[in-house]
Every structure is written in C-alpha cells, then in structure tokens.
C-alpha cells in the first residue's frame, strides 16, 4: 500500500505533466520519450546495443503509428518512467497500470519486429529495419507453405 502522501505527490506530478505536455507540439521524439522507451525495453529484454539515431527513428515511428502514445498521456508515462516511479504509480492507480501494460507490450512487440529479435538480444548490435506495418510480406512467424 502506498502512503496517501506519496499517492498525492504522484497524482500531482501526473497532472502537472499532462498540463505541461498538452501545451506544445514538436517534430521527432518528445523530450524524454526515447529515454523512457529505452528504459521500458531494457526492463523487458535486458540491455541492448543500438545507435542512438536509429533508436530515435524507431521512437518517432512508434509514436506516429500509435497516435495515442504521441500525446500527453505518453509524456506523462515517460516522465514517470524516467523518474523511476512508474511502477509505484501503476500500483497506486489501476488505470495507469493498464496503460503501462499496453505500452510495454506494444513497445516490446514493435521493437522486436522492427529489429528482428525473437528473444533477448544479448550484446549483438541491433539495426532498425522499419516498423512492421511499413512492410508488405514481412511476418516472421507465418508459415505460408
């Protein structure tokens, strides 16, 4: 159980983030998004090696494809992730836990498909091959014959 005072702080930070993030639009990944997504992915698949510019392109494409993650909702999650309190916040707010679960699964799925990994990448450098949706017959799992 998270103390009431801590819940209040978390709630206040979410509200602040939403208010601030809702006020501007910009091209490319928003500040903190790349760092947050990298943190989320590392938590799920372990450390990975990828050029920063390639990873930024992935983040940009991911946010564009998942329109709901390019709004202030995503910014709020990013701030909480980067502040290291997203797990606590998710435990305090079931609605946030559900959003976090969706984000984690979508990020993992798109990243795995966009890099061709089918498990933890280890130390092998990863290349960004484009989002799954940008290709045609690129389903790595389908048996066609």
């Amino acid at each position: 159980m998270i103390p009431v005072r801590r819940r209040t702080v978390i709630a206040a930070s979410v509200v602040t983030v939403l208010a601030v993030a809702g006020g501007f639009e910009m091209a490319g990944p928003r500040p903190g998004q790349s760092k947050a997504l990298r943190g989320i992915l590392q938590r799920m698949i372990g450390d990975f090696t990828m050029e920063e510019s390639a990873f930024d392109r992935f983040v940009e494409d991911f946010c564009a494809a998942k329109a709901h993650w390019s709004t202030f909702e995503a910014d709020a999650l990013a701030i909480l992730e980067n502040a290291g309190i997203i797990r606590s916040a998710a435990r305090a707010y079931p609605g946030l836990a559900s959003k976090l679960d969706q984000l984690e699964r979508q990020a993992l799925t798109e990243f795995a498909l966009a890099t061709g990994i089918q498990g933890p990448p280890g130390s092998h450098p990863l290349a960004y091959l484009g989002l799954f949706a940008s290709g045609a017959c690129n389903n790595p799992f389908a048996r066609l014959a």
């Binding site: 799920m44 698949i45 679960d101 969706q102 984690e104 699964r105 979508q106 993992l108 799925t109 795995a112 089918q118 498990g119 933890p120 799992f141 389908a142």
Partner: peptide
C-alpha cells in the same frame, strides 16, 4: 493469428 494485444512481456513467452 495475430498479436492484437502485443507480445506477452515474459521472456521466452512472447507468442
């Protein structure tokens, strides 16, 4: 036959 809700997050159990 698709990942409508995404892969599962657990290592080794994505599909």
């Amino acid at each position: 036959n698709r990942w409508k809700f995404g892969f599962r997050p657990e290592t080794g159990r994505w599909r």
